[in-house]
């Protein structure tokens, strides 16, 4: 990972690019063949649909299509910015995103570091398997579980009641929505998210630890001065990628968990897009909101990459 930048952004080859490409292609044609489906995937599912974004500037009607629908300029955007719920959904989206960045992002890293310190193989394996599980359960089921756990007769309330607290259905309390969302998010993503860090950890040169030990470093010092610097590039890359998705709070989990009482803290851009687009069939408007979201994400991604390049010398490109 640390070499990514060196290889890509500072080519040191003397021959022209086309010549090198040809030579490389001849040598690795099977690998290029394997690449085709991936490239096709991106073109078909990521690039081709982009032209559809133009409906953000239309009063779009599916039957008339993109060529037949009326152009309305920035009307959809203006409507969105002047919408009563604009401030609220933007605020909620930002709050949920940043909370998840602050709490959900470091969790798998810490978890991976802890796993790395374990010596018992069987224990490690079983903990890993258990923590991966929630990732494979469908979102609908996960949300069903969360609802059951937090309802006033659920087990979390049993614990609260045991210690003398009062029972309440937590998902009806707007103040608790974000904590529930974040905590369950950590639970869902902890094991799965740690895989990449565990992989990075296996790549750390064991000699470094030996050297540190000779210098008198204990476990904690080793972690601080060897392990963490070693996985830092991975962490930074993951962080930049995360920033690029910062406003993408998935609508599935939100709409499965919210109810009228928690709209004020739970309604986010994506659930708004879902309601406008799929339920009200306000396609153009919905596309405009989605586009707004993407543009913000794009800007954040570029900014994060720039900053990272400047200060940590690790970057995506």
């Amino acid at each position: 990972m640390r070499n990514v930048k060196n290889n890509i952004s500072k080519p040191r080859y003397s021959k022209p690019f086309s010549v090198r490409l040809k030579a490389d292609f001849r040598r690795n044609k099977e690998l290029y063949l394997l690449l085709i489906p991936l490239i096709a995937f991106y073109i078909i599912f990521k690039y081709v649909p982009m032209y559809g974004s133009v409906i953000a500037f239309q009063d779009f009607s599916p039957r008339l299509g993109i060529t037949g629908s009326d152009w309305v300029g920035f009307k959809n955007f203006i409507d969105f910015f002047s919408d009563k719920s604009f401030i609220r959904i933007l605020k909620n989206t930002v709050i949920i995103s940043f909370s998840s960045l602050i709490f959900c992002f470091p969790a798998p890293i810490i978890f991976a570091l802890l796993m790395n310190e374990l010596r018992s193989k069987i224990f490690t394996r079983s903990v890993q398997t258990i923590t991966y599980l929630p990732h494979f359960i469908s979102m609908v089921v996960i949300c069903g579980l969360i609802r059951r756990f937090t309802v006033d007769t659920g087990f979390i309330n049993d614990i609260i009641a045991f210690f003398g607290g009062t029972r309440s259905t937590m998902l009806n309390n707007p103040k608790l929505f974000v904590p529930i969302y974040i905590i369950s998010e950590i639970w869902q993503g902890l094991g799965w998210g740690s895989i990449i860090y565990l992989a990075a950890l296996t790549g750390v040169d064991q000699q470094l630890y030996e050297a540190a030990m000779i210098d008198g470093a204990g476990r904690w010092k080793q972690t601080l001065h060897v392990t963490i610097p070693a996985i830092m590039p991975t962490v930074v890359i993951m962080f930049i990628l995360k920033i690029g998705n910062i406003l993408n709070v998935g609508y599935e989990k939100i709409i499965l968990l919210y109810n009228p009482l928690t709209y004020e803290t739970a309604d986010v851009i994506s659930s708004f897009v879902y309601r406008k687009g799929l339920l009200e069939q306000n396609w153009g408007y919905s596309a405009a909101v989605g586009m707004f979201n993407s543009v913000i994400n794009f800007i954040l991604l570029i900014a994060a990459n720039k900053l990272s390049k400047k200060y940590t010398e690790t970057s995506l490109w």
Partner: peptide, 19 residues
């Protein structure tokens, strides 16, 4: 179009406030 937007906004708001 405008009626749908308004009634949806109204009912979302009413559902929330009544609760």
């Amino acid at each position: 179009k405008s009626a749908a937007t308004i009634t949806n906004n109204l009912s979302t708001y009413v559902d929330e406030m009544w609760m």
